[in-house]
Simulated assay, not measured.
Amino acid sequence: MTHNLNSKRWCSNKSQGYVIAIFGVLVAFSMRYILHPFLGSSLPLFFFQINTILIVYLFGVGPGLFTILMSAPLMIFYFMEPFGVLSVVDQRDITTLFVYLSYTLLSSFLVELLRREQYNSKVAMLVSETR
């Protein structure tokens, strides 16, 4: 069927997704910054991962990758020890970033594939109803 070619079009407002992605990163940063006195250096990426997964679910992998690019520097500078200082990246920082990137990218691409399949099944249902 030719509707598989249109699977990338499941989200019609991706440009709006980039604006909402910026807002989502700001919200995630604010929540983590407010809880920073309680959390310290633990869970530096939790709120950013939730934001990225939600953005991918709603707007696709493009805006999701944009949130990753915005979140990583904020996370490194504000929520990884030493706080508020650009210092030499050590093994622990590399491990944290690897976990953040691998988990978030994997879940983002899986959500994108699921949304495409959902769109394909919706189009197939509409095509079958017209026949």
Rank of each mutant, 00 (worst) to 15 (best):
P73R: 06
G60P: 06
H36E: 14
S42M: 09
Y103I: 11
Y100L: 14
V123N: 06
I22F: 13
G40L: 14
G64P: 14
A21Q: 07
T96I: 15
F79E: 10
V89Q: 07
L39S: 06
V123R: 12
V99S: 05
S102A: 10
S42D: 12
Q16C: 03
L35M: 14
L86W: 15
V19T: 09
R92A: 15
L45R: 00
L26I: 11
V99A: 06
H36Q: 11
I20M: 06
Y33E: 11
N51H: 06
T96L: 15
L114A: 03
K122C: 02
I53E: 07
F38T: 05
I50W: 05
N51S: 09
R116D: 05
D93Q: 12
L126A: 10
I53H: 07
N13R: 11
L97V: 13
S42R: 04
S128W: 02
F48Y: 15
N13A: 08
M80S: 05
M80R: 09
M31C: 13
L74E: 05
C11P: 03
L97D: 06
M70I: 15
F66G: 04
Y100Q: 07
E129K: 01
Q118P: 06
Y18M: 03
S121R: 15
S87W: 04
Y119R: 03
R32C: 09
L101T: 07
S87Y: 02
F98D: 04
L105R: 06
L43K: 02
L35G: 02
D93H: 13
V88D: 09
S41M: 07
A124T: 08
E129C: 00
L105P: 00
M80I: 14
M125A: 08
T52S: 10
F46N: 01
S42F: 09
S12F: 10
E117W: 04
A21S: 12
F83V: 11
P82I: 08
L45H: 07
R131I: 15
A72P: 01
N51C: 12
S41L: 04
L54M: 13
F59L: 10
V56I: 13
M75S: 09
V56E: 05
S30D: 07
L43G: 00
V111L: 14
A28T: 07
L113P: 01
V25L: 02
I68D: 07
